[in-house]
Amino acid sequence: MQPNTQTVSSVTPLMVCTDIEPIAAHDNRKTVGEISVDNPRMSCRNVNVFYGEKQAINRVNLDIGRHEVIAMIGPSGCGKSTFLRCLNRMNDTIDSCRVTGEILLDNQNIYDKTLDVVPLRAQVGMVFQKPNPFPKSIYENVAYGPRIHGLSSSKSDLDIIVESSLHRAGLWNEVKDRLDQPGTGLSGGQQQRLCIARTIAVSPEVILMDEPCSALDPIATAKIEELIDELREEYTIAIVTHSMQQAARISQRTAYFHLGDLIEVGETNQIFTNPQHKLTEDYITGRFG
């Protein structure tokens, strides 16, 4: 059942969360579960990420299917956010960060030297942990993406995009009378939905969500989870979350990261009811992390 006989019980939980050094020890570890899917939207092979000398992600292979929500879970510092940020090359903004390996989006390597990140990020949108609306009006927040990418031909066209994006983000009824007011004046949950509206306004293929509910109360969280479920119809969603309940509620597949390794990946049901790897089981049963 366990391909690796190495025990982790000797490592104290605290060490697990903060120290990425022992990566070399896991070198010949192979991910448990089925990493590939048929006709994937994104496909990652041998992805390594280094921050300076430190390796944060170690040879991760993972496919992300079409119209699925894939949840990435794991203890803090395990590299799940780093991995997520590789998928639209947001790590490029960090000077010391280096990514090797291959990430295909619709069979096109996004780390190809000739690839332009601007259209990539239009295809792979991102929602961040902390709601970060622009300090502009609600309308401008949503209209900004379509405008810079030239997705609308006229003002009325843009109005339609803004309205439908806000509709799909479930925010339209709450803000339709105050579109000209600053987006920063909304409540935390509304701000996060505004950020989602902003992301879907450019009609991406994939939406990356980096702990989108960690700063929100349960009601706002529930709204966003509902929204994610609806968005799955049209988009592929990769979500990083600290809440295992959330992962269980909204995702079809779950990937468990540990110290930069992708330990286990599989159907969400199976991961939460019958984890194959000892580390996954420990994490899910709350023994550490």
């Binding site: 947001m90 239009a122 970060n132 622009f134 900004y144 810079i148 950020c195 306004a201």
Partner: peptide, 11 residues
């Protein structure tokens, strides 16, 4: 976060 937001939608 403002920079990330802008870069994240492809600015």
């Amino acid at each position: 976060s403002i920079r990330e937001a802008a870069l994240g939608i492809g600015a």
